[in-house]
Amino acid sequence: MSSSTELTEKKVFLLKSLDGVIFEVEESVAVQLEVIRELIEGDCARPFISLYNVTSEILALVIEYCKHHAETCSGGTSATIADEDLKTFDNEFMNVDENILLELCSAADYLDIKSLFELTCRTLASLIKDRTIIEVRKMFNVENDFSVVEEKAVRKEFAWAFK
């Protein structure tokens, strides 16, 4: 948890969210955000890194995710146990409402965190898959802006895709 007890001081970086909240993260966590890794390598990470597209609420979740992944991977446990642990964590982590899921996906894309991006996209796909078009529209507030004629034409063109 805290690095103060350790003899060698761990490098920390400050991340500033869209709404001005500053988060302190260790290097092992920060480098998982590909965007930030580049900034660190280019020595442009001081005094803090402003992330204009991510709110503090989402950034806190992203950091929680990266922290858990960094700790599990460097924890010295065997690869299979670490894999199982991450799988369980990921499943629980995805237990959020659609709006947060979408924001996490967007943040993972913006911050370039490959594993979180894959995870959120896969979860969103599974939400779409099990639902009818009307249910998907309702769930994600997708407004149907087709005219009746247009929608009919699309359904006709891809008739094989609709039961």
Binding site: I128, I133, V136, D145, F146, E151, F158
Partner: peptide, 11 residues
Amino acid sequence: KYAVATSVLST
């Protein structure tokens, strides 16, 4: 099939 079905969600 499911990917194509989403084409009817909106324009």
